[in-house]
Computed example of a mutant assay.
Amino acid sequence: MRLPLAVLLSLSLLAGCGGGGGRSAPVAPVAPSAVVAPNFGDADPHPETAIARNRHPVHGIDVARFQKSVDWATARANGVNFAFIKATEGGDRVDEMFDSHWRGAGRAGVRRGAYHFFYHCRAPEEQAAWFFRNVPRRSGDLPPVIDMEWTPDSPTCTIRRPAAEIRADAEVLIRLFTRHYGTAPILYTTVDFYEDNQMWKLRGTDFWLRSVAAHPSDRYPGQHWAFWQYTSTGLIPGIAGEVDINVFAGNQGEWADWLARRAQP
């Protein structure tokens, strides 16, 4: 059956803008310094999604074991400029996809950084040592990330310690990570964890904030942020299934300046 031209055009646009994980034809490599505009979709966009897309030119993703299939070259060509990759959790777990994602992002020219998922039942010194053992120091990589949030679904550790103790652990981790990697870590957190533990009391910290239903200024009033995780239902060519998408706070020039100051020396 011969389809009308309008239908053919619509199908073509859907094929180009979706987030299917199928392998595509080889794409030309993109330099790590180049900022590529996003060619993304979203399975469940919220009103601020358009603001994130239009106001912030530097987009990236975060991935872990849940992203089993990533064609990094295709993702890079479609606007993935940076990636935060889960490396470790607690003091004895390494994400099973870390090595694959780490190597793939590097080969594709994606600016990459590793993150550690904080475990509330281990000492911060032990967790830092475990991360250092598994994540190499490499000049030009993004600062490491400490992911601090509540863990109500953990099979082994659901405790909620006092806010002052949690902030003290964060300060220990920030000090140890800074000393080891030569640049201060980024702190990722969620709305409830941020509020419950008064995380704004941590000074001199670059925050990466999760806010998938509103702008960070609504959920974290007055808080400076470097990265905003604005959706967990993103669709990106080259990545099978849905993925978290993030934006950097500034424009392309500010991104270059931030990298010059904050990337690993």
Rank of each mutant, 00 (worst) to 15 (best):
W130Y: 13
P221I: 09
Q229V: 10
V243I: 15
C157M: 06
D147C: 08
Y181V: 08
I236N: 05
P136H: 10
L209C: 06
F131L: 13
M199Y: 06
T151I: 06
V212F: 02
V135R: 01
D218R: 14
A240V: 13
E242L: 11
E171W: 05
A184M: 05
R219P: 09
G238D: 04
A123D: 12
I174L: 11
H224F: 11
A164K: 15
W208I: 01
Q127P: 01
F227N: 01
R210P: 00
F193C: 07
G238Q: 04
L173A: 09
D141V: 04
V212I: 14
A168N: 12
T190Y: 03
A249C: 10
A226G: 08
G204Q: 10
F207Q: 05
G204V: 10
D244W: 01
C157G: 09
L176S: 12
P124N: 07
H215A: 12
A168M: 04
W200K: 15
T156M: 10
L202S: 13
T190A: 09
D218P: 02
V135W: 01
R160L: 06
M199H: 07
P155F: 09
T190E: 00
E242D: 12
V247H: 01
F193R: 04
I174G: 03
C157L: 06
V172M: 02
A168R: 15
P185Y: 06
L142P: 03
A214N: 14
Q198N: 15
D192N: 14
I239Q: 06
P143V: 05
D244I: 07
N197T: 15
V145Y: 03
S217Y: 12
N197P: 04
H224G: 15
D169H: 09
M148S: 04
E195C: 05
R179H: 13
I159D: 11
C157F: 10
N197M: 08
P237C: 12
P162K: 15
W228V: 09
E195G: 10
L187T: 03
I239N: 08
T189Q: 07
V145Q: 03
P237F: 05
G234N: 11
A128C: 13
R210Y: 03
V191I: 10
W200E: 15
E149Q: 13
G204P: 04
N134R: 15
P216N: 10
Q198D: 14
D153V: 13
S211R: 02
Y230P: 01
S232G: 15
T178R: 12
F132M: 10
P143K: 05
L142H: 03
W130R: 02
R161K: 13
A249F: 09
N134P: 06
K201G: 09
T156W: 14
Y188T: 08
L187I: 15
V247L: 02
L176T: 11
S211I: 05
Y181M: 01
S139W: 05
V145E: 02
W208V: 02
M199N: 07
A249Q: 08
R210A: 14
P136N: 11
C157S: 10
V243H: 07
Y188K: 08
D206K: 11
R133V: 07
T178I: 03
F248C: 01
T158S: 11
W225Q: 05
P185A: 14
D192G: 11
A184P: 04
A129E: 13
